[in-house]
Simulated assay, not measured.
Amino acid sequence: MMFSWPKKWLVLTLASVVCEISFCRTFVKVDANEELCFFEDLKKMDPLVVTFQVMEGGYLDIDARILSPSNEALYSQERVKEGTKRITAQVDGRYTICFGNTMSTMTAKLVSFGIHAGHGELVSHEVAKQEHIYPIQTKVLELADKVTQLKDLEQNLKARSARHKQTADSTNKRSLYTSMLESVVLVSVNLWQIYYLRQFFEVKRYI
């Protein structure tokens, strides 16, 4: 997996990548009014699975695109919070995955996404014939795809849990500050009432 550095597209300010063989889970920060693109070199009939979720920033939305080697849009969504897209390469070449934050003028977005590209190579033993290997190979590839989907689902659930925890912590802080403000206002009102009553009785005693 590679990513682009065109000045008019993006400035990569944060990238934390964890990869296992052909599956990568990436956290990237897409600044306001910029687009971040990654590349995958695929062969014909190779699968490409892209999943993503916006973790932080604004309304938690992002523009997502997948382009063919000829720059044909295979997938295009605007202002989405999360998504999963699976395609099969129709031609050999470099496919492009882009995340755009051009709708925002000030707020950066933190995006978590995973890419699973290609099946990898399986080598058969010389004594085995292709007709014997093919059914097993097909099952292994199906299992590999399902394991990848489960891994990605687990990552999405973890990311969603972290986002909910952040929201809960923010709500608790706001509740605490609101309670403190109410207490200050209540004490201030009580002090003012005491002061007013004392002034009232002092004036009356003087008369």
Rank of each mutant, 00 (worst) to 15 (best):
M2V: 04
L12M: 11
T13Y: 05
V17L: 08
V18D: 12
C19M: 09
E20S: 14
I21D: 13
F23K: 05
F23C: 07
N33P: 04
E35R: 11
L36P: 05
C37G: 04
F38T: 06
D41L: 13
D41A: 15
D41Q: 14
L42G: 06
K43G: 15
P47G: 08
T51D: 03
T51R: 01
F52Q: 01
V54W: 03
E56M: 06
E56T: 05
Y59Q: 06
D61S: 09
I62M: 01
A64H: 04
A64N: 04
R65Y: 11
S68I: 08
P69G: 06
N71P: 00
A73D: 06
Q77M: 05
K81F: 05
T84M: 11
R86G: 00
I87C: 05
A89N: 09
Q90M: 15
D92A: 08
Y95H: 02
T96I: 07
I97R: 01
C98N: 03
F99I: 02
F99S: 02
M103R: 07
M106N: 14
A108P: 12
A108W: 07
K109R: 15
V111F: 08
G120D: 05
L122C: 03
L122H: 06
V123R: 12
S124I: 00
V127C: 10
V127H: 10
A128E: 08
E131D: 12
E131R: 10
H132P: 00
I136C: 05
Q137S: 14
K139C: 10
E142N: 10
L143K: 15
A144Y: 06
A144F: 10
L150Y: 02
L157G: 01
K158R: 12
A162D: 03
S175V: 11
Y177F: 14
L181P: 00
S183T: 12
L186Y: 12
V187M: 11
S188M: 13
N190P: 00
Y196V: 05
R198N: 13
Q199D: 09
Q199H: 13
F200A: 05
F201M: 07
E202C: 07
V203F: 07
K204G: 00
R205P: 02
